[in-house]
Each structure stands twice: as structure tokens, then as C-alpha cells.
Design a binder for these strands. Sequence first.
DNA 1: CTATGATTCAAACACACGTTTGAAACCTTC
DNA 2: GAAGGTTTCAAACGTGTGTTTGAATCATAG
Lengths: 209, 209
Amino acid sequence: MTDATRQRILDTAEQLFADQGFHATTLRQITREARVNLAAVNYHHGSKDALILAVFQRRLDELNSERLARLDAVLTESDPPDLEKVLEAFINPALLLSTQSAGDGGRFMRLLMRAWAENATQLHGAIARQYSHVMRAFADAVSRALGTSPDNLRQQLDFLIGALTYTMAETRDDQVEDTARALVRFGCAGLRESALAAIPKTSLKENIA
Amino acid sequence: MTDATRQRILDTAEQLFADQGFHATTLRQITREARVNLAAVNYHHGSKDALILAVFQRRLDELNSERLARLDAVLTESDPPDLEKVLEAFINPALLLSTQSAGDGGRFMRLLMRAWAENATQLHGAIARQYSHVMRAFADAVSRALGTSPDNLRQQLDFLIGALTYTMAETRDDQVEDTARALVRFGCAGLRESALAAIPKTSLKENIA
DNA sequence: CTATGATTCAAACACACGTTTGAAACCTTC
DNA sequence: GAAGGTTTCAAACGTGTGTTTGAATCATAG
């Protein structure tokens, strides 16, 4: 089986999608740059839309399983978990993915932003579905680290995701470690402060019980 | 002069761009929905690209001047300025723009995300140019509120912009005030914490001098 | 070596896009 | 109410897109 063609299409498409967007990138451009015949995309992937989804599936699987593995390590290490380490388990795999996946960093993050922006319905839905259980796991871990209920945490985690996605997309390879460190610190402070604001109601409840 | 057609095109285009993206939205779709002839876009705006820019110009002018006006009020009120109020001056106009500009909230924020993602070079450049002096002003105000140098502040402000843009785009009208409050709190805590980390080097410098 | 299935290739297809055109309709001003 | 400039309109143009096709090439198993 000639899996090489499939892979080369996937790699080239990922790069071009990240640089130019999905709609702006044409199959002719992809196949030319990948040194592959035009019809190869439809033969191996079915359609352009399916190709876009395949590009995401590959990276998202990688990113999310790495995140969950690290979270698991943090959770078994101490209970309640350390907030910094939970956030690192969420943030660092993203930065690793940016730097190691051949080529310039931030490509995949740019890709994520485009996915969010373009072609909303189908792609956004598929990504959200693939993210949901990861988000639940991290929201749970953070809430235990903070000692608060996970109810209002989704909002703060969204702040973090927004900050991560936005900055990673603009961060160069050599700054990426510093940025991650700064983001962990920033996020921890924000989460702890928000937890302080939420505590009064909780402790009131506990006083009744 | 029939300015009505121009405006109706602008309004409809803004909505469709926000919902579907620039590339995915066709002039036929815009003109059909705006009850306007197909050629009207080219007649009134020159081209599709020019239309996209015009849509942004209108909102960005509004947003930035409002931000600067509020910042000015905060700065004259007290010196050094209050960090919370500086952040509110940055965040609240964005939320106002979301809710008041007829139709569903978050539209303009979604638009901003798309602008960032799509058509990178031209549009991103134009927006950044229009944003730069505003960012400078806020970075300056924040640095004075924190009592630190504005050198590394850009990064933290990028965190804030990312969080703002990402969450505003997904926030419904009735939640938008809560979200803004939470974001101000979140951002203040993050900025203060980051300032603490930066101080040692600064104070070392001051000790030498 | 040959037959069978998988893969590549050049060419073409149908379609939708942004834009242009030139005439019609409209509005203003004298 | 006619002239002149502005705006609308239906129709078409050229181009580039994703996809399909059918023959050619390749790999593999009998």
C-alpha cells in the first residue's frame, strides 16, 4: 500500500491550510507542492472537506492523548493536584506540537484558529466533540486543585484557551518556552483569583451543612 | 445621494462575514440578502476586498475611539491609574459593541477572529496598524498602574486580547456582562502576578543606579 | 510471465465566483 | 420638462475551482 502519497498530501495540506486558510488553499496548490497528481486527493481522501478533517484528526488525537497522559501523571502524583502542574499538562503539549511538527512553530495553532473561524458548523462541531471530554477532565482537575466546584470553571478555562491559541499562533519557536511559562503563571493567578470570588457562596453552603 | 444602499450592503456583509467567513461569503449572497443588485457592491465599494476593509473600518474606528476616551477618563481620575479601571476601559467597549450593534452579540468579535485567521497579510496588517497606538496607550497605562516597565507587558496584553476575543465570540448577550467582569478580574490577577515575577530584575537595576 | 487489482496521470467537466458592461431608471437642477 | 449626472439592473465574461473519467502505469500474487 502506498501510504506515502496520503501522508505527503496530509503534510503539505496542513502547512498550506495554516498559512492561507482552508478556502484559499486549492487542491492544485496542494498537489503541485506535494509532487502528486491532482486527482490523488480525491482518490485517497475522498474530497477536500474530508482532507481538512483528516488533517485535524491526526494532530488533535496526538495533542489530546498527550494532554490526558500528562494530566494522569499529575493526578496520581498528589491529591489534591498542583494547579501549576495541571495547567502545564494542558499548555505544554500544545507548545510541543507547535515546535516539533516539522516546520515553523505555531502552525497547528494557526490551524486551530482558522478552524474555529472558517467553515464553522461542521469543523467546529467535530473539533468541539473531540475536545469535550478532555476539557471535562481538566476542569475537574482544576476544580479539585482550587477546592471549588467546577461549575463556573469552564469560563476561566475558555479564557486560558483563548490566550493560549491567540499567543501561540503569534509566538516564534525560540520564545515559545518563555511564553508557555508566562501563560501558566498568568493562568494560575487568574484562576486562583476567580476561585476566591466564588468561595463565599460555597463556604456558606458548607456552614449550613 | 443614496447612502442607504451602501449601508445596507455594509450591514448585511458584516453579518454574513461573521457567520460564514469572508471567503465563503459570496457577493451574490450579500446582494440577494440586502435586496440590492449584484453590481452594487462593485459600484459602491469597488471590490469585495475593499468591502471587507470597509466593514472593519466602521467598527474599529468606533471601538478604538471609545476605548481611548474611557482610558483618558481613567487617567485623569487618578495617578497612578487603577488597574481594574484600565482593563475595564479596554474590555467594556468591546462588549458594548457586541451587544448594541443590532443583531446577535459577539458578531464583531467573531469577525475579528476571522480577520485574524483569514486573508492574513493585507487585513491583519491593516487592523494591526489601526490597533497599534491604542495598544501602546494601554500598555503604558497598565505599566504605570503596576509600577513596572512596559517592556514585557505586550505578552500579557496579548493573553488578555486572546481571552477577550475567544470568549466574546462564544458568549451570549445575557451572559456578556458577567463574562466581562470575570475577565477583568482574571486579567488583573494575571497581570499583577506577572508583575511580581518581573520586579526582582528591575529593582536590582535600580539598586545599581 | 501473466493476470488482477491498486495507484497515477492528463484531460476534461460542470459550476460558481468576482467583475464588467451598456442600457434603463431615477433624481436633481436649471 | 429637458439635460446631465447618479444609481440600478439584467446579462454576460473570463477565470479558477473541486471533481470525474478512462486510459496508462505499477505492484503483487498465482
